[in-house]
Design a protein around this nucleic acid. Sequence first.
DNA 1: ATGAAAGCGCTAACAT
DNA 2: ATGTTAGCGCTTTCAT
Lengths: 357, 357
Amino acid sequence: VKKSITNSKPARLTPPAVPTVKEVAGLAGVSTATVSRVLTGAAGVREELVRRVRAAAQKLNYRPNSVARNLRVRGTRTIALVIPDIENPFFTSIVGGAEHVLQAANYTLLLANFNEDSEREDLLLDTLRAEGIAGMIFAPSANPSRLYQELWKAKLPMVAVSRLPDGLSVDLVTVENREGSRDAVRHLLALGHKRIGLINGPASLSTARERQAGFEQAFSEAGLTPPKDLVLRADFRQGGGYRAMKTLIGMPKRPTAVFVASNLMTLGALQAIHEHELDIPSAIAVVGFDDMPWATSLRPPLTVVAQPARELGVTAAKLLLDRLQEPARARRHIILGTSLVVRASSGSLSPSRASSG
Amino acid sequence: VKKSITNSKPARLTPPAVPTVKEVAGLAGVSTATVSRVLTGAAGVREELVRRVRAAAQKLNYRPNSVARNLRVRGTRTIALVIPDIENPFFTSIVGGAEHVLQAANYTLLLANFNEDSEREDLLLDTLRAEGIAGMIFAPSANPSRLYQELWKAKLPMVAVSRLPDGLSVDLVTVENREGSRDAVRHLLALGHKRIGLINGPASLSTARERQAGFEQAFSEAGLTPPKDLVLRADFRQGGGYRAMKTLIGMPKRPTAVFVASNLMTLGALQAIHEHELDIPSAIAVVGFDDMPWATSLRPPLTVVAQPARELGVTAAKLLLDRLQEPARARRHIILGTSLVVRASSGSLSPSRASSG
DNA sequence: ATGAAAGCGCTAACAT
DNA sequence: ATGTTAGCGCTTTCAT
């Protein structure tokens, strides 16, 4: 398409201008105020006018400009959801759950992913602040940006999810990390394992600290000393789990079982185990954290501590909705349960040899 | 279907008093126009005033209100990314890639997930239209909403990703679905398989049609007739793959190999195979589509047609950025390559019994 | 080079 | 019950 500049007016070079309240009002023969009243559902407009306005809006295919509206009413219906890693299915499950609730309440979800990078997290929060969001759900990084503090002081309704935000008394939803881990290790101890490894995330994350506490608790309860030398830290990602597992395998007295405290790290650990052609569970028993779609597709199927990821998102969204409605209400911390899902990788139910216990 | 125009009240009517240009201007002793000039980086402001404005802004911790700005300049820096399923890692990889490029270009990404639900897709697009987005990247549903048409007619810059949008001549980035599938089936044929099953997605999706074409092409090239009876359709989800695999396994003359044309369906298929305690690859060889984090954690590791998901997002974002800058430029369709990644599940490299072909 | 003033499209006070 | 009008906070002519 060639665009030439001439003096003659082109038939229609100007794209169809988007209709505004003014045009709708004109067509309906009413004032813009009445149009606004009808469209926002305000009471007290004559039936006849309501009909005319509706018809005019329909005819013009009119949609209110929400930017203008937001400016006027000084507020948006946008909720930001700040997550550390969009490529981690655990977090997308949270997103899915939150989205479900928020959409039903007619909020728009603005997803902000900082990729476990504190610098990006800072930038993101800065943008969010300018964007005029109505509220925020967030899973903070290990070193949470001080901007959370600022937003909180500015009275932005916010709820933290999954991870405890250091020094921020906001609404909160987490899971029973300690209990879940304790159950996993109890299970392994009950199967006769003594040398149990732990592949955990960074201690700066509350989830990692709690899972470690559970690990240790199970040993203590059994009258045993937790094997400090078998506790490894990685970065909650696949590569970290892989390397940690390699280290565990290379030990002179290698553990007979391992508890891997996150979904992606478990994938890495399995890869390392397969590379060394170690049989699961006879050479090494494995329990993971977080029940993922692939858990039952693995061979053997993976024993895991299941956490209700989607429910975490749903609950966070509900907490936020409540706070939005009643800003002064008391703060709440909701803790969702975890459950040990025993499959074959821990050795109790080897499907190929269904020997009775 | 009746469509009523939304009329919800904004969540926050009284935001905490936040500084405005006026206050900055007052503190700096200049006009609001000058403040705006300095902050938007317009040329021709005395060095001295620039300093004063900057200092005042800093002191007040001022951030321009982007809602007001967007209204004034009649445009936003928000790009919508519309995807069918946020819990599918393939799509989140696309998101990750697009996000990377868009953030660098100082755009905000608005993620819209319609959960493979056409009705939700409609609603989403309607909202997006009111939101005044600058552009859109989308992977349409099987029956793409007619609202795409409308947005396109309204000259919204948009690029489709992964799936061909029916009857919409927008910029486009896809992968070599046919070639990839052909290579996968060629590989299985070369290994001596004759009865090869195909578990595919719905024919309404271009990706599924192309993958089927590749499947058939490989047979034709080998002088064979494609086994129509072994071609099953599911919904691209895990449950669909599971059920389809069950059907395949239950056949009187069960296939000796199966090509599963999507990531989640492959997970389902594997689950069915494990339940029947069939050995991979000796009882049934498996090739999947899309290289996922778990592929190397499976036992045996999964042979797949790898597609560059992240790159798909990156490319889509670049296409959009280009079009944003030059709306009249020629339309482009970029096709990214796929590659067959041979691992043990197809039988060529069984790690436990490295028998020669 | 800077300021005054006019809106962007909408809703809410205030009139009538 | 409806219309008139005044901004929301910002950018951008248009003057000077």
